[in-house]
Design a protein around this nucleic acid. Structure first.
Lengths: 269, 269
DNA sequence: CGCTTAATTGAGAGCCTTCAATCATCGTGG
DNA sequence: CCACGATGATTGAAGGCTCTCAATTAAGCG
């Protein structure tokens, strides 16, 4: 059951690389040692699951590669909740209302931590804590944007939004074009957007016929006009603040009874 | 533009109440003072927006009341991303791909913080940091569960899941029944589940005819069988670990090439 | 008690899914 | 290096679930 092939270490050098790239820590700090003592280094080949303990929340640091975090919903359909790439920190839920798994899209190396111990140690070091307070809310906000897309957007809007999002994470700019080398299949894209592969294919076809994108082989997509795609995604555009079809919420209409109160009025009620 | 009515203070006593209930802090600690210096106390009447700065990520602590966090998507449709109740800490995204707002479902009092400063100070105190490391991943995981529902579940499953989730947050057990006094309208429920009010109404009708629930007036729903509702929601059920329709992911099939490697093998690569 | 707003119920339309077949891509073996 | 086979992607037709539009009923408040 144990293949001879590759090697992977939680050794000092590797671990220093992790603490530096993830948290900006200098080698030799206490937290580093403490985190190392609960880390489990894992190499997951393309297409395989990460060996998770589903009884516990876990945290993973991706040293390299790409993964999908997904759950099984009804009728055997999968919902991908997030894609992750090298350098990312992944928060993986224990079995709750759904059962989650992490699958490698390409050969991936990761460090696995039990969430409780991980956060206990992180809370003791302000540098680590601060780094996590950047990442966790960011992950939450990405998930919220995804919820908006899944709940209220058409297939075309979701596809356009997916392309724009991917361009920011794995896009390679070439002049005013952007070349995407996607590590995930059409099925993965569909499972991420709550669509079928057929619909993904059809909507990509629509964008292709509009001249906004070009597909090359299975994994390469060229984006010709990111602004247009952003508009098609129903995203908030800097250029559209005025006569916006996707309008910003006008908080000035919010009624002044939502009063700001002097933060220093001593005591009270 | 400033109404004379109620009063609200960030005064010492109120603030101590906040730091104690949110973080388990004793009064008089440094963090408390530091957080207070950046806090803004706000009373938001039912149906009104919280006065947010959309240029900045923000954090809100709900002293009491109930709110919805929502975004505007295409065609003027809203997507509610989360409901929050008294005691909750809310992470509110700045304008990014979508524009978010917080609306009070009932009269609500909250403390608003700029996220950056809030987390900077939180990172310096391990007790506060630890508390947030409980709440932030929990919020993320709730959002992930919601994404699964929005992406891959039928209207009936979503409604059932909503009722089960609400029973845990605002449910009042009465014998083996559970009484829900919902602060949100059918429209809010629909906007939270990516459905229309009509569909919400129809699916509630289905559950009613099955004898699983009873509706009383606009805001009260009685749940007769939480287990059955949980199954209808397509959730993972403890009782269903064996012949599960909503199966857990079988990580034992995950192939052993996802090897666990000795965490102490010194140095390497 | 009447009015306003919310919720329910019904009929028809639309978008995405399902089912099915064809085509393309890419890895493998000759 | 090319042919082949397997898998993935594309395209087409039909069906289903939810939405839209419309009318009716109920709830809650003054």
């Amino acid at each position: 059951m144990r293949y001879a092939s590759e090697q992977l270490h939680t050794g000092a050098a590797n671990f220093d690389r992790f603490t530096r790239s993830a948290f900006g820590l200098e080698p030799g700090e206490d937290v580093g040692r403490q985190l190392k003592s609960i880390a489990q280094a894992v190499a997951v080949p393309r297409g395989k699951f990460a060996p998770l303990d589903r009884e516990l929340d876990q945290v993973a640091y991706l040293a390299g590669g790409a993964t999908k975090l997904w759950a099984r919903a009804s009728k055997g359909r999968e919902q991908i909740v997030a894609f992750h790439f090298g350098g990312d920190i992944v928060s993986i839920p224990a079995d709750g209302v759904h059962s989650y798994a992490v699958t490698a899209l390409v050969d991936t190396e990761m460090l696995l931590f039990p969430a409780r111990e991980f956060f206990d140690r992180a809370a003791e070091n302000s540098v680590v804590a601060r780094a996590l307070f950047d990442r966790l809310p960011a992950a939450l906000h990405r998930c919220r944007d995804k919820a908006v897309a899944l709940g209220r957007k058409s297939a075309l809007e979701r596809i356009a939004g997916f392309l724009v999002a991917m361009s920011k994470r794995v896009g390679r700019p070439e002049g005013n074009r952007c070349v995407l080398e996607l590590p995930m299949s059409r099925r993965d894209i569909g499972d991420s957007l709550g669509l079928t592969i057929e619909t993904v294919s059809r909507q990509l076809g629509v964008l292709r016929e509009e001249g906004l994108i070009e597909t090359q082989g299975r994994s390469c997509i060229v984006l010709f006009d990111l602004d247009a795609l952003t508009r098609r995604a129903g995203h908030l555009c800097p250029s559209e603040d005025f006569h916006a079809p996707t309008s910003k919420i006008d908080l000035d209409q919010c009624d002044a009874r939502a009063r700001r109160l002097a933060p220093d009025s001593t005591e009270g009620n």
